[in-house]
Design a protein around this nucleic acid. Structure first.
Lengths: 335, 335
DNA sequence: TTATTTACCGATAACGTTTCCGAAACTTGA
DNA sequence: TCAAGTTTCGGAAACGTTATCGGTAAATAA
C-alpha cells in the first residue's frame, strides 16, 4: 500500500507534476478547467500532498512549539487547546511540552523543539531569568516567539498577559468593601512578574481605602503550600479576617485546613482565589475568584504568532493585556 | 543565518557527505577516528541533521498522534505526558489532539493526524462504535495503533486497559464490608465497555456477599451530572446509604449537593469515587477512591506502540491489563 | 610474491514536493 | 497578417538527507 504521489496524478492525466502542484496551491497560472479536473482525479486516487516533501522544499517545518510550566491546573491545558485550534486551522502542527516546573527541563524542551525545527514558539516561563540568554539568542535570530502568563521584562518580544495588577486590586477591594480588616495575601513566588504585579494591586487597594497594607506571605500555587500557610497562621495564632490567595488551588488548600480547625468560612475567615479553576464552583463554600480569559489568551497568542510568521522581519513586538472577571461567591460574602 | 547542512561539514573536512552521514548514524563502515573528528567539527559548526530531510528519504514521519476525549480530568494529561516522554526519547514527535467528547471531532482529529503522516497512534475512543470502520481500515493497512482506557471490543488491536471489573468489585466490597446496605452505583455511559465492566464488578461484589444488587443509575463523568443525580435522589426521597460513583468529579458533584441539603458524609451517605483525581485528598470529607496507574498506562501504551513500529508486520496485538489501588479515606468510613 | 578478503570511503540516485525559466498556444491590436 | 502580449503548461533544478554500489588501499591468507 504505497501512498499515491503527485507523479501518479500527473501520469494519470498526462500532465506535468508542476501543473498538479499548481492545482493544489491555487496558483494563478493554471486554467480553471484543468485545475478542477486535477483536484477531482486526485481525490479519486486518494492523493494527499506529502507535507514532509513540502516542508523540505519550502524550508519551513510548519511546526509550532508550545512550552508550559505544568499541566496540574486547568489553566494551561485550556489556553493550549485554544491556541492549537487556531494554529491547526492555519496548517501548523503543534508540539506541546511541559517543563515540570523545572528550568532545566524547560531548556531541554526548548532544545528538542529546535531539533524539530519549529517555525515559532509559544512560551510560558518557569523563571524570568533562568534561560533568558537562550531566548535572547533566538529572538536575535528572528525566531518568532510569543510569551504568555509568565513573561520576562528583559525580553523584547510579543507578550500576552493578564492584567494581574488590576484584578488583584479589584479582588482586594472587594474584600475591603465587604468590611474585612486585616487581609493577608498569600503571594506566588516573588521571582515572577505576575506575583509582583498582584502585590502592587493588593497594596494599591489598601492605599485607596486608607488602610494599612496587609501582610504578604510568600506561598506557592499548590494546595499543599496553601494548606501549609494556613497551618502556620493557626499555630502562630495569627489568623486574619480575610485571605487573598495566589490561585485557587492555594486558596482551597488553605480553606481545607481552616475548616478542619473549626473555622467558619467566610464568617471567621473570608477567602478569595485567583485564576478560576473548575473547582471554585464545586467546593463548599463556593470560592470567590478572579477568572482569567483562558480562551482569549490562547487565541491571541496564536494569532500574534501567525502574524509574526507571516510578516517575518518587519514586525514590532507588542504586548497585549487581557481582561478578566471577578466571580463573587460564598467564600467572601457575609451578609 | 542559514542552517548549516551536512554539505558544510563535509566541505570543511574534505570528506564526502556520505561519510558525514555515516558518522551520525553509527554505521559500521567508518573509522572510529574520522567519526569522532566529524562529530567534533560538526558540533563546532553547530550542525544538526535536518529531521525533515531524513523523514523524506526514510519514508517515515517519526510522528505519533495521540487522541483523547478530553482534558478536563487530570487523567488524560497525566498519561499523555508519560507517553510523550517515552516517545520523545526514542526520537518521535508527539501530536496531541482532544476530541472534546465528540465523535465527529475525533474523526477530524484522525484526519489531520493522517495528513501529517503519523507513523502510529495512541487513542482513547469517544464511543466504541462511532468511528470503528475508519479504525478498521487503518488497522488493515498495518497502521500501528494502541488503544487505552476507552477501547472497542470489536477492534483487534493493542490495548492498555485498567481492570475496571476488579476494582469496581473491590470498591463495592469495601462499602459492603463497612456495613452499608442499599448501595447505588452512579454509572458512566452505557456505551462504554469500562462502564459495563464496572457494573459487573459492582454486581459481583453483591452476589459474593449475598445481597440484592443495588440500583444502577446512568450518569456522566462531570460534576454537574453527579450533582443532578444527587438532587434527583433527594427529590424522590430515595437517598441510599452509600454511593459508588463513575469517577471523582461525579462523586464530588453529588457530595456537594448532599452536603447542601444537610446530609452528613459518610454518616448519612457514604461515597466512593473512581480514578483518583487531585481533589480527592483536598475536599471535605476526603474522598475514598480507586487510583489508576496513569503513569504506567502512558508508559505501557508508548512502549507497545514502539514495539509495533519496530517489528512492523509480524506483531500480534495484545491487551495489557493494569492494576490499581483503593485509597480509603473519610468519605466511606464511619467508625 | 600473489590472490583474496576486509576496512573505509566517494559518487550518485533517490524521496516528493515547489519554484524558476522558458516555450508553446492563444489572444489582441493595428 | 504580423508583432506583441497573455495565458497555460512542461522541464529541470533544488531542498538535505540516506542508501546503494563500486572502488581503492590496507590487511590477511596462500
Amino acid at each position: 500500500m504505497k501512498r499515491t504521489t503527485i507523479k501518479d496524478v500527473a501520469k494519470k492525466l498526462n500532465v506535468s507534476v508542476s501543473t498538479v502542484s499548481r492545482a493544489f496551491n491555487n496558483k494563478y497560472d493554471i486554467k480553471e478547467e484543468t485545475k478542477e479536473l486535477i483536484i477531482k482525479t486526485a481525490k479519486e486516487l486518494g492523493y494527499r500532498p506529502n507535507p514532509i516533501a513540502r516542508k523540505l522544499i519550502q524550508q519551513r517545518s510548519y511546526n509550532i512549539g508550545i512550552i508550559v510550566p505544568e499541566f496540574v491546573n486547568s489553566y494551561f491545558p485550556d489556553v493550549i487547546m485554544e491556541a492549537q485550534k487556531v494554529l491547526i486551522d492555519k496548517g501548523y502542527q503543534v508540539l506541546i511540552m511541559q517543563s515540570n516546573d523545572s528550568s532545566e527541563t524547560e531548556l531541554k524542551n526548548l532544545e528538542t523543539l529546535l531539533d524539530n525545527m519549529v517555525d515559532g514558539l509559544i512560551v510560558s516561563l518557569i523563571r524570568e531569568d533562568d534561560n533568558i540568554e537562550k531566548y535572547k539568542e533566538l529572538l536575535d535570530d528572528k525566531m518568532p516567539i510569543v510569551f504568555f502568563n509568565r513573561v520576562a521584562d528583559k525580553l523584547d518580544a510579543c507578550k500576552v498577559v493578564f492584567d494581574d495588577f488590576k484584578w488583584a486590586f479589584f479582588a482586594t477591594e472587594h474584600l475591603i468593601l465587604q468590611g474585612y480588616e486585616d487581609i493577608v495575601y498569600l503571594s506566588g513566588p516573588k521571582h515572577m512578574r505576575l506575583s509582583l504585579n498582584r502585590i502592587m494591586g493588593f497594596e494599591k487597594a489598601h492605599r485607596k481605602h486608607r488602610r494599612d497594607v496587609g501582610k504578604i506571605i510568600p506561598c506557592g500555587f499548590s494546595m499543599e503550600e496553601g494548606a501549609k500557610a494556613a497551618r502556620q497562621m493557626i499555630e502562630n495564632n495569627q489568623v486574619p479576617r480575610a485571605i487573598f490567595a495566589a490561585n485557587d488551588h492555594c486558596a482551597i488548600g488553605a480553606m481545607r485546613v481552616f475548616k478542619e480547625y473549626g473555622y467558619n468560612i467566610p464568617k471567621d475567615v473570608a477567602i478569595v482565589g485567583f485564576t478560576e479553576s473548575r473547582l471554585a464552583e464545586h467546593i463548599h463554600p463556593t470560592l470567590t475568584t478572579v477568572e482569567q480569559p483562558t480562551k482569549d489568551i490562547g487565541i491571541t497568542a496564536a494569532n500574534l504568532l501567525i502574524e509574526q510568521l507571516e510578516n517575518k522581519g518587519m514586525f514590532v513586538p507588542q504586548t497585549i493585556v487581557l481582561n478578566g472577571r471577578l466571580n463573587v461567591r460564598e467564600s467572601s460574602v457575609t451578609h
